[in-house]
């Protein structure tokens, strides 16, 4: 039997919002270590990797490893039925063909349960090599969302250039060109408001704006976001999820032909 109880149910609601624009369906792989999900969008240009550690749940039981194929559109409809204050429990029998979501109101005066059919997904799993990135940039997640939204008006591609001075985001198209430069924060008084750059070597890469904008649907999960870049390898955009895990997005660069 599998059962995972999350006191802060709103986190799962936010995770749903972070996944459903990019993915239609995905396999939730459950083990005694926790819940993992890895899936590429239909165009195989981006990949989402979610990790929720068992110890982050109020109660977590996984008798046998379980992979639950879910239609994320349906799952999103069910999670919309949960209030932000609800405790959310996910449970399934071993080799079941359905999963049940239970929403408990904080004072237990309302308990809802929703049963959803599972899908057989032949998920291809990609090996993501451990990489020592040339540049990592940590910045406020709201800032990154704003930059992606503003610059995607100018072009379908965004160039992210990181040097020791700072990081520059640029986009150009029919109406013109936009450049946004962020300097490394001088004093880091409020950690999550800071722009922190670690640079081994300067990097400049081009990415499709539409995927970057999809990634920023995870903004509500964390006050800060971390971008990792190396020449000619996929960008990593990582949002921590409180003390339970993270959601990581990988995006293949556009390279001059």
């Amino acid at each position: 039997m599998f059962e995972a109880r999350l006191l802060q149910g709103s986190l799962l609601k936010k995770v749903m919002e972070a996944l459903k624009e990019l993915l239609n369906e995905a396999a939730w792989d459950c083990s005694d270590a926790g819940i993992q999900l890895q899936a590429m969008d239909n165009s195989h240009v981006s990949l989402v990797s979610l990790n929720l550690r068992a110890e982050g749940f109020d109660k977590y039981r996984c008798d046998r490893n379980l992979s639950m194929g879910m239609n994320l559109g349906s799952m999103s409809k069910i999670l919309k039925c949960a209030s932000n204050e609800d405790i959310i429990t996910i449970k399934a029998q071993d080799n079941a063909d359905t999963v049940t979501f239970v929403f408990e109101s904080p004072d237990q005066d309302k308990v809802s349960d929703y049963e959803m059919k599972l899908m057989n997904l032949d998920q291809e799993h990609l090996g993501i090599p451990e990489t020592d990135y040339a540049c990592t940039i940590r910045l406020p997640s709201s800032e990154f969302a704003r930059i992606c939204r503003d610059l995607s008006q100018f072009g379908e591609s965004m160039v992210i250039s990181c040097t020791k001075e700072g990081v520059r985001f640029s986009a150009t198209g029919d109406i013109g060109t936009g450049n946004i430069k962020l300097a490394q924060s001088a004093k880091v008084d409020k950690e999550e408001e800071a722009v922190v750059i670690e640079m081994q070597e300067p990097v400049s890469l081009t990415f499709a704006c539409r995927y970057l904008n999809s990634f920023t649907k995870a903004t509500s999960l964390s006050k800060s976001v971390q971008l990792s870049m190396s020449p000619e390898v996929p960008l990593v955009v990582e949002y921590k999820i409180e003390d339970i895990g993270h959601v990581r997005y990988y995006l293949a660069p556009k390279i001059e032909d």
Binding site: M40, V45, H125, L126
Partner: peptide, 14 residues
């Protein structure tokens, strides 16, 4: 113009 790459050029099927 820059050409979009596929992730599979970077990550191998495990």
């Amino acid at each position: 113009t820059p050409v979009q790459n596929d992730l599979k050029e970077f990550f191998t099927l495990a």
